[in-house]
């Protein structure tokens, strides 16, 4: 265990534990966009930055990744921290003008004006990578990835074609913090990332629930007969 201070308050943490976790446990508010408890950190959004004074050496760091160390002083709301956060939010608001979450956070952090020409082509995607990590680490199919670099970087299935491995589970839709990923269901067909999935109808209540593709995949990986999975959760 190590002793450190956050905004002057003495706190205890496990050595190496991410500062974000420590600070939140102690009740400090640090905003995040690309961090998720189940998927951990990737340090992309830089909204969680804090200032650290380590034996006189001051620097702004991503709290989701910076390891707790003995005697460091952490400041969650210094001028430097505020400038980085406000900049990130203004830049994201210019990139994703229609994203309600970004609008909300920007307002909360006092970003009232966007000094750049807003993008029209990025939708609500902030490139937090949560969908990619979720598809790989939780679902286990790796149907999504990032391609391109710089301003051309984007997320999606390889070559923007309907993915061969996507099972249509929609986990990416759920985890996306801004609601960028569209998923539609109509007449027993689910469409996500341009791929169409036939939905299974529950033999008991006749309601459409999950894509057949997903049921087959669960059946195969968990060794459960498809017939069992065809019955919807409510009727099971």
């Amino acid at each position: 265990m190590v002793q450190l201070s956050i905004n002057g308050k003495k706190v205890t943490a496990e050595e190496g534990e991410a500062l974000l976790k420590v600070a939140r446990r102690e009740g400090f508010v640090i905003p995040t966009l690309c961090y998720h408890e189940l998927l951990g950190s990737s340090g992309r959004c830089r909204l969680c930055v804090v200032e650290v004074n380590d034996a006189g050496k001051k620097r702004v760091v991503a709290s989701c990744l910076y390891p707790a160390k003995e005697n460091i002083e952490v400041f969650t709301d210094s001028d430097e921290v505020r400038l980085v956060r406000r900049t990130v939010l203004e830049l994201l608001l210019a990139r994703n003008p229609s994203a309600e979450l970004i609008q909300h956070l920007a307002k909360q952090h006092g970003v009232t004006e966007v000094r750049y020409t807003p993008d029209q082509d990025k939708g609500k995607c902030i490139l937090c990578n949560l969908c990619v990590r979720c598809c790989k680490d939780i679902v286990g199919v790796s149907a999504l990835g990032m391609s391109g670099k710089g301003p051309m970087k984007k997320v999606g299935p390889p070559f923007d074609e309907p993915s061969e491995t996507c099972i249509g589970c929609g986990a990416c839709v759920v985890i996306c913090p801004t609601g960028h990923i569209a998923m539609e269901e109509e007449k027993g067909v689910r469409t996500v990332w341009q791929k169409k999935f036939e939905l299974a109808a529950c033999p008991k209540c006749k309601r459409y629930h999950l894509p057949l593709f997903q049921l087959e995949w669960i059946s195969k990986t968990r060794n459960i007969p498809v017939e069992e999975l065809m019955v919807c959760e409510d009727c099971r």
Binding site: G43, R44, C45, R46, L47, V84, T87, V88, L91, L92, A94, R95, I126, L127, M146, G148, K149, G150, P151, M152, K153
Partner: peptide, 13 residues
Amino acid sequence: TEESCGKCVPCRE
């Protein structure tokens, strides 16, 4: 701009 990998917001945007 073109060579930024695009991972973090401050650099990419």
